[in-house]
Protein backbone atom coordinates (compact mmCIF):
# COMPACT_ATOMS: atom_id res chain seq x y z
CA UNK A 1 0.00 0.00 0.00
CA UNK A 2 1.39 3.37 -0.96
CA UNK A 3 0.26 5.92 1.60
CA UNK A 4 -1.06 9.33 0.64
CA UNK A 5 -0.40 12.53 2.51
CA UNK A 6 -4.06 13.17 3.24
CA UNK A 7 -4.69 9.74 4.65
CA UNK A 8 -1.55 10.07 6.75
CA UNK A 9 -2.66 13.44 8.01
CA UNK A 10 -6.07 12.10 9.02
CA UNK A 11 -4.50 9.12 10.78
CA UNK A 12 -2.14 11.37 12.71
CA UNK A 13 -4.92 13.76 13.65
CA UNK A 14 -6.88 10.83 15.05
CA UNK A 15 -3.83 9.69 16.97
CA UNK A 16 -2.76 13.04 18.34
CA UNK A 17 -6.05 14.72 19.20
CA UNK A 18 -7.72 13.01 22.16
CA UNK A 19 -11.29 14.01 21.23
CA UNK A 20 -12.26 13.32 17.61
CA UNK A 21 -11.44 16.47 15.68
CA UNK A 22 -14.30 17.59 13.48
CA UNK A 23 -12.68 16.26 10.35
CA UNK A 24 -10.81 19.44 9.64
CA UNK A 25 -7.79 18.72 7.54
CA UNK A 26 -4.68 20.68 8.40
CA UNK A 27 -4.16 23.54 6.05
CA UNK A 28 -0.97 23.79 4.06
CA UNK A 29 1.75 25.53 6.00
CA UNK A 30 4.56 27.27 4.27
CA UNK A 31 8.18 26.78 5.15
CA UNK A 32 8.40 29.40 7.84
CA UNK A 33 5.11 29.02 9.66
CA UNK A 34 5.66 25.34 10.40
CA UNK A 35 8.77 26.38 12.25
CA UNK A 36 6.77 28.79 14.35
CA UNK A 37 6.20 26.41 17.20
CA UNK A 38 9.00 26.57 19.71
CA UNK A 39 11.93 26.75 17.31
CA UNK A 40 14.01 29.82 18.17
CA UNK A 41 12.49 33.30 18.25
CA UNK A 42 10.90 33.39 14.84
CA UNK A 43 9.48 36.52 13.22
CA UNK A 44 6.24 34.50 13.13
CA UNK A 45 4.48 35.41 9.85
CA UNK A 46 0.70 35.96 10.38
CA UNK A 47 0.11 34.45 13.80
CA UNK A 48 -3.63 33.80 14.11
CA UNK A 49 -4.83 35.82 17.10
CA UNK A 50 -4.76 33.65 20.23
CA UNK A 51 -7.27 31.00 19.14
CA UNK A 52 -6.45 28.26 16.57
CA UNK A 53 -3.34 26.64 18.05
CA UNK A 54 -0.76 25.14 15.71
CA UNK A 55 -2.08 21.67 14.84
CA UNK A 56 0.08 18.84 16.20
CA UNK A 57 0.75 17.63 12.68
CA UNK A 58 0.92 19.31 9.32
CA UNK A 59 1.65 18.83 5.65
CA UNK A 60 4.83 20.66 4.69
CA UNK A 61 6.09 22.04 1.39
CA UNK A 62 8.51 19.28 0.37
CA UNK A 63 10.39 21.35 -2.22
CA UNK A 64 11.62 23.86 0.32
CA UNK A 65 11.98 21.65 3.40
CA UNK A 66 12.95 18.25 2.03
CA UNK A 67 10.19 16.44 3.95
CA UNK A 68 6.44 16.29 3.50
CA UNK A 69 4.86 15.72 6.85
CA UNK A 70 5.75 16.93 10.29
CA UNK A 71 4.23 15.96 13.64
CA UNK A 72 4.87 17.14 17.20
CA UNK A 73 4.42 14.33 19.68
CA UNK A 74 4.29 13.84 23.40
CA UNK A 75 6.71 11.13 24.59
CA UNK A 76 3.94 8.56 25.05
CA UNK A 77 2.78 9.06 21.45
CA UNK A 78 6.11 8.09 19.87
CA UNK A 79 5.58 4.33 19.84
CA UNK A 80 1.96 4.51 18.54
CA UNK A 81 3.11 6.95 15.85
CA UNK A 82 5.95 4.60 14.93
CA UNK A 83 3.49 1.73 14.61
CA UNK A 84 1.24 3.87 12.45
CA UNK A 85 4.12 4.51 10.05
CA UNK A 86 5.24 0.89 10.23
CA UNK A 87 1.78 -0.28 9.14
CA UNK A 88 1.98 2.04 6.14
CA UNK A 89 5.30 0.62 4.97
CA UNK A 90 7.62 3.43 6.05
CA UNK A 91 11.29 2.73 6.77
CA UNK A 92 13.36 4.21 9.56
CA UNK A 93 15.76 6.85 8.26
CA UNK A 94 17.37 8.30 11.36
CA UNK A 95 16.84 9.36 14.95
CA UNK A 96 18.70 12.33 16.31
CA UNK A 97 18.54 15.16 18.79
CA UNK A 98 18.75 18.93 18.85
CA UNK A 99 19.77 20.73 22.02
CA UNK A 100 17.74 23.90 22.57
CA UNK A 101 19.84 25.23 25.42
CA UNK A 102 18.14 28.63 25.67
CA UNK A 103 14.69 27.05 25.85
CA UNK A 104 15.88 24.35 28.27
CA UNK A 105 14.62 21.62 25.97
CA UNK A 106 15.87 18.61 24.08
CA UNK A 107 14.23 17.83 20.80
CA UNK A 108 14.27 14.27 19.49
CA UNK A 109 13.78 14.09 15.73
CA UNK A 110 12.73 10.92 13.92
CA UNK A 111 13.01 10.70 10.13
CA UNK A 112 11.12 8.14 8.05
CA UNK A 113 11.21 7.59 4.31
CA UNK A 114 9.07 5.37 2.19
CA UNK A 115 10.96 2.80 0.09
CA UNK A 116 8.76 3.14 -2.99
CA UNK A 117 7.14 6.55 -2.72
CA UNK A 118 8.54 10.01 -2.32
CA UNK A 119 7.00 10.61 1.13
CA UNK A 120 9.27 11.66 3.95
CA UNK A 121 7.85 12.02 7.46
CA UNK A 122 9.37 13.79 10.44
CA UNK A 123 8.27 13.17 14.02
CA UNK A 124 9.45 15.45 16.79
CA UNK A 125 9.25 15.34 20.52
CA UNK A 126 10.44 17.97 22.96
CA UNK A 127 11.24 17.13 26.53
CA UNK A 128 12.86 19.10 29.37
CA UNK A 129 16.60 19.25 28.85
CA UNK A 130 17.59 17.86 32.24
CA UNK A 131 16.86 14.18 32.53
CA UNK A 132 15.57 14.01 28.97
CA UNK A 133 13.85 10.68 28.48
CA UNK A 134 11.59 9.14 25.82
CA UNK A 135 10.46 5.59 25.10
CA UNK A 136 12.49 3.52 22.66
CA UNK A 137 11.23 2.84 19.16
CA UNK A 138 13.52 -0.13 18.70
CA UNK A 139 10.72 -2.63 19.25
CA UNK A 140 8.83 -1.28 16.26
CA UNK A 141 11.87 -0.54 14.10
CA UNK A 142 14.91 -2.58 15.19
CA UNK A 143 16.99 -0.14 13.15
CA UNK A 144 16.17 2.56 15.71
CA UNK A 145 18.37 0.72 18.21
CA UNK A 146 21.67 2.06 16.85
CA UNK A 147 20.32 5.53 16.11
CA UNK A 148 18.99 5.87 19.65
CA UNK A 149 22.22 4.59 21.11
CA UNK A 150 24.11 7.21 19.12
CA UNK A 151 21.66 9.91 20.23
CA UNK A 152 22.22 8.86 23.83
CA UNK A 153 25.98 9.12 23.24
CA UNK A 154 25.81 12.60 21.80
CA UNK A 155 23.02 14.20 23.83
CA UNK A 156 22.55 12.12 26.96
CA UNK A 157 18.91 11.53 26.08
CA UNK A 158 17.72 8.29 27.68
CA UNK A 159 15.54 5.91 25.72
CA UNK A 160 13.50 3.87 28.18
CA UNK A 161 13.27 0.20 27.29
CA UNK A 162 16.35 0.36 25.05
CA UNK A 163 18.33 -2.89 25.30
CA UNK A 164 21.79 -1.31 25.58
CA UNK A 165 22.67 2.36 25.98
CA UNK A 166 26.39 1.86 26.60
CA UNK A 167 28.72 4.18 24.62
CA UNK A 168 28.55 3.33 20.96
CA UNK A 169 30.62 5.67 18.81
CA UNK A 170 32.29 7.30 21.80
CA UNK A 171 35.02 5.53 23.84
CA UNK A 172 33.68 2.83 26.15
CA UNK A 173 34.37 4.89 29.28
CA UNK A 174 32.82 8.10 27.93
CA UNK A 175 30.63 9.90 30.46
CA UNK A 176 30.19 13.10 28.41
CA UNK A 177 27.76 14.05 25.67
CA UNK A 178 29.54 16.16 23.06
CA UNK A 179 26.57 17.56 21.13
CA UNK A 180 25.06 19.21 24.18
CA UNK A 181 25.51 22.92 23.61
CA UNK A 182 27.15 23.40 27.02
CA UNK A 183 29.77 20.73 26.33
CA UNK A 184 33.22 22.24 26.70
CA UNK A 185 35.53 19.38 25.79
CA UNK A 186 36.37 15.87 26.91
CA UNK A 187 38.87 15.61 29.74
Amino acid sequence: MTPTLDELNQAFLRLLTPAPALGTACEMHDATSCEGKGVSPNPAPTPPPTSAPVPPCRIVEGKTKGYHFDADLAPDQIVPAGRLLDERGFAIDAVTGVDWLAAGQMEIVYDFYHPVSVLHVVLRCRVPREGAEVPTLSEVFPGANWHERETHDFFGIRFTGHPDLSPFLLPEDADYHPLRKDFTGAA
Binding site: E35, S40, N42, K65, Y67, V122
Partner: peptide, 14 residues
Amino acid sequence: AGDYYHAVEAARGR
Protein backbone atom coordinates in the same frame (compact mmCIF):
# COMPACT_ATOMS: atom_id res chain seq x y z
CA ALA B 1 16.04 29.83 10.64
CA GLY B 2 14.44 26.42 10.44
CA ASP B 3 15.35 22.88 9.60
CA TYR B 4 15.95 21.46 6.13
CA TYR B 5 16.68 18.04 4.76
CA HIS B 6 18.15 16.67 1.56
CA ALA B 7 18.97 13.13 0.53
CA VAL B 8 21.11 11.94 -2.38
CA GLU B 9 21.96 8.51 -3.75
CA ALA B 10 25.56 7.91 -2.76
CA ALA B 11 27.50 4.84 -3.88
CA ARG B 12 26.45 2.96 -0.72
CA GLY B 13 22.87 4.15 -0.59
CA ARG B 14 20.86 6.97 0.83
